[in-house]
Every structure is written in structure tokens, then in C-alpha cells.
């Protein structure tokens, strides 16, 4: 079963989340600070990390950055309500997803499953000529897309956007990240482009564009492409 490392300075959270995840069959390690968490990760080699952003010793965003220096392990960040800017910072620094406190354990576990599934494939995805996310199949060499075996007509920009999202499937990508990678440096603030294109993709890919299951919105933060069977 998957190994989870929880980094939080609150003993109560470590106890509760640890108990809940163990009861769901995970192996759980805990650390009460950023530095301790980073060194535990080296020893325990976790499959996914749950990281609180408000740590006493090291800023959580800095912890994300340090993780990304040597590992692609998925990181799910725990953050307080109303701290969108901090979430975005953490995601830009390499976190995969976030859960807002207070959260139910089912929600946390759902995020962990998405992170685990996509995290395992992401290392391969960087190089792969063909990307698959649920019913979606992208051939990067031929620049063609299929949905449940049916070809989908995409403009060059739509394809680039979709390919970027597919390469980071399961991860919440921030507006800035997408704009700079797909539109180019300097486009980082033009979030309205992104809204327009996300809507176009949804009209072409989703069964019900108003209730997207494939391309999800994280309000105020960014987008996340997930396989619809993901919770």
C-alpha cells in the first residue's frame, strides 16, 4: 500500500490524519517540521507527501521547492481558507494539489488517490509521444487528439493547452504556469485567454460543459485535468 508522509506542526492533526489514513490501509510517517520532513522523505521514500503550509521552522512553499530539487513525489498541500495566494505559490513551487482546512478525511484521501495515480505516470509523461488521461488520447508527434476513439478537432493553441494539461494530469496547474508555458513569457497575467480556451476545450471534450468532469476549475487558482473516474 502507498506510503504517506504527513508534515504538520500540529500534533492533533498528525494524530487524526495518521489514524484515518492508517485505517484506510496507508503506511503513514509523520514529521513536525519542514526540515524534519525533508530528511524523513529521504529515509522513508514516501509515495505522496501531505504538507501543511504553516510550519514553524521552514515556510511550506520553501519546503515544496526543496522537495522539487531532488524528487517528483506528489505533494498535497494543506492550507487555510482564504489563502489563495499561498496555494498558488505552493503550486508554482511544485505542489500537486491542495486541500483547504478544515477538511473531511474522505476529501483528503480522494486528493491523495489522484496525486498517487498521476504522480506515478508523470515521470514517463515528460518523454512519452502519446498521453492518455481517462477517455482522452493525445498523440504529441502527430498533434492529434481522440476522445473515446473519436478524433477531436483542435486548433493549434487548443492542442498546446490540452497537451500541457495532460502532461501535468492530476496536478493543479496555476493560471500563470499555463499562460507562460502555452502563451509564452509575459502572458502570465492574461487569465481571460485561459478562461476562453478552457471553455472551448470543455465544449469539445465534456459531456456536459457546465459540469466538467475532465477539466476541473480550482477557483482563483488554476485548472486540473483528471480522468473522470477520479473522485
Amino acid at each position: 500500500m502507498a506510503r504517506v508522509l504527513i508534515i504538520d506542526d500540529e500534533e492533533a492533526i498528525l494524530r487524526v490524519v495518521g489514524t484515518g489514513l492508517r485505517a484506510r490501509g496507508y503506511d503513514v510517517d509523520t514529521a513536525t517540521g519542514g526540515a524534519a520532513g525533508l530528511s524523513r522523505a529521504v529515509i522513508d521514500n514516501p509515495d505522496v507527501v501531505v504538507l501543511d503550509l504553516g510550519l514553524p521552522d521552514l515556510d511550506g512553499v520553501e519546503v515544496c521547492r526543496r522537495f522539487r530539487l531532488w524528487t517528483e513525489v506528489p505533494i498535497v498541500v494543506l492550507s487555510a481558507h482564504g489563502t489563495e495566494a499561498r496555494k498558488v505559490e505552493a503550486l508554482d513551487a511544485g505542489a500537486d494539489d491542495f486541500v483547504t482546512k478544515p477538511f473531511g478525511m474522505a476529501e483528503l484521501e480522494a486528493r491523495l488517490r489522484v496525486a498517487l495515480r498521476h504522480g506515478a505516470r508523470r515521470a514517463v509523461a515528460e518523454e512519452a509521444p502519446v498521453l492518455e488521461v481517462g477517455p482522452l488520447r493525445l498523440d504529441l508527434a502527430r498533434r492529434s487528439a481522440e476522445l473515446r476513439g473519436q478524433p477531436v478537432e483542435l486548433t493549434a493553441r487548443e492542442f498546446d493547452l490540452l497537451a500541457f494539461l495532460a502532461r501535468h494530469a492530476g496536478k493543479v496547474v496555476t493560471h500563470r504556469m499555463v499562460l507562460e508555458k502555452v502563451w509564452g513569457p509575459g502572458a502570465g497575467d492574461e487569465t481571460h485567454y485561459l478562461r476562453v480556451y478552457a471553455n472551448r476545450l470543455r465544449r469539445k471534450l465534456e459531456d456536459d460543459p457546465n459540469h466538467p468532469t475532465l477539466l476541473r476549475t480550482s477557483p482563483g487558482v488554476g485548472y486540473q485535468l483528471v480522468a473522470p473516474e477520479d473522485p
Binding site: E10, A12, I13, R15, V16, V17, G20, L78, K101, P102, F103, G104, M105, L108
Partner: peptide, 8 residues
């Protein structure tokens, strides 16, 4: 902080 533990 306590709310997060209670809810979880």
C-alpha cells in the same frame, strides 16, 4: 487549527 483536527 483545532477545527481542522475536529472536522477530520
Amino acid at each position: 487549527t483545532p477545527l481542522a483536527s475536529i472536522k477530520a
